[in-house]
Amino acid sequence: MSRAALLLLADGRFPAGGHAHSGGVEAAVAHKAVHDIYSLEAFCRGRLHTTGLTTAGLAAAAAAGCDPLLLDDAADARTPVPALRAVARRLGRQMMRAARATFPSAELDRLAAERPQGAHQPIVQGLAVRAAGLTPKDAACAAAYESTGGPATAAVRLLSLNPLDASRLLARLSAETDTVAAAAADAAARVTTEGLDVLPSASSPLLDITGEQHAAWTMRLFAS
């Protein structure tokens, strides 16, 4: 296994479509709920422990070899609004393209054939991590990191924040990100004995509501 492969998969420059998504921060900025680096940190912390934990669990379970189609259903049940399901599948398709080009695997090919409209992104990400020879914990870490890295980068653009402040924010969250990833990977390790219900389903009412609101905007910079 290659550490560098994990860095590649978790890099915001990995060409899998993430740069056009704000993880809900564009809506939060419009509502003035996020307006500076402190409110951005609170946003990122909340997203990490909700969406971040849930996606990390799904990614870790996929990396551990759980049936990706069952995981895809589990992801649907954990994503109650259509706008965010559509985003997750669209990003899943884009991640699939990049993953198959970088870490070809029969499992990725099979999932692509079975879910031509895209599987939920963390599941594709987990399979990519698996194809790269990495661990479920690595997958959880990449997904948890992405749950804050995306919004932080988007907020830098939307609010013209100092990028150094944003990096410091992400550094402050890194221990919590590890904790979330560890919890997600622990849950994924118990799926074989306890079933998929053991995976986290942490959710946030505002991310669901504003995610659907944002999708209805006619003018926006980010796709979500």
């Binding site: 809900g24 939060a28 509502h31 709920a33 996020v34 409110s39 609170a42 946003f43 990122c44 912390r45 909340g46 997203r47 990490l48 422990h49 909700t50 259903d73 589990a74 049940a77 954990r78 109650p80 919590e176 998929l196 219900d197 986290p200 389903s201 942490a202 959710s203 946030s204 009412p205 505002l206 991310l207």
Partner: peptide, 27 residues
Amino acid sequence: GRLLLDQHTAYGDPEPGWDGPAVLDGH
């Protein structure tokens, strides 16, 4: 027999981030 909805919420201290702009934002 099929899972339709699975949601977990956690509010109030010591939950991290529960009252921030991504979760409840003061509501």
